[in-house]
């Protein structure tokens, strides 16, 4: 046999053995750090509590709320229709998002909004999920603490505030009535709107004649 063929065999074998020592390719779906950084700096990933309230009231079918707090806290209070994915159960031991959550997080056309008491934990969940190629994820700015301040107990703007603030206040009062049945707002309204009743004097019939 031609010597070249031997050489060819040896070459192919060395290449094959060399390929064995190639760094192991990870098959975890993830985006590059640069893209993650770019997405992180995009401020549109935050939504306000007013926007969330509006979406809930309109019962937007593409809205999907996710509570990232512990299941105890989720049990005591959460937003209507929210699902619980605690931060500590998000990731598998091999570093991928638990398969049981993927079906919920990876739905075409759904707006997934994360929230926690503030927005730090929700943001941490956002970073982990975004790294694993999930899209259309948002974080509720301020979390439930801001939700309580703005939607459940809206503050009346001062008299000199611009009209927009009054419009926002009206919306928030309406939203409050929607979420808590108005029990909080009615209390404060009664005090504010109490109008002193003026009792009419009874007309005295002129008695007696001439």
């Amino acid at each position: 046999m031609n010597k070249t063929y031997y050489f060819l065999i040896i070459l192919i074998l060395t290449l094959g053995i060399g390929a064995l020592f190639f760094p192991e390719k990870s098959y975890i779906k993830e985006i590059s750090p640069e893209l993650l950084f770019y997405k992180m700096n995009n401020p549109s990933r935050f939504v306000t509590t007013d926007q969330v309230a509006k979406l809930i009231i309109e019962s937007d079918p593409t809205l999907f709320l996710i509570d990232t707090r512990s299941s105890d806290q989720y049990g005591s209070f959460s937003l209507p229709g929210a699902m619980n994915i605690p931060l500590d159960e998000l990731v598998d031991s091999i570093g991928i998002i638990c398969p049981k959550w993927i079906d919920y997080l990876d739905i075409e056309g759904m707006k997934v909004i994360f929230f926690s008491n503030s927005d730090v934990i929700a943001d941490q969940v956002w970073v982990i999920c975004t790294r694993h190629e999930l899209d259309n994820l948002y974080v509720m700015r301020g979390g439930l603490n801001t939700w309580a301040e703005t939607i459940l107990m809206p503050q009346k703007p001062s008299e000199y505030s611009p009209d927009e603030e009054f419009a926002l206040y009206d919306f928030r009062r309406g939203a409050c009535q929607y979420f808590v049945g108005g029990s909080i707002s009615i209390k404060s309204d009664v005090v504010a709107d109490q109008v002193p009743r003026v009792r009419r004097k009874k007309k005295t019939v002129v008695a007696g004649g001439c």
Partner: peptide
């Protein structure tokens, strides 16, 4: 060769958060 590469996976980062 990518400029930036992940050196820890999500399980490790979650552990350090917790």
């Amino acid at each position: 060769k990518p400029v930036h590469i992940y050196k820890s996976n999500s399980a490790e980062i979650l552990k350090s958060i917790l």
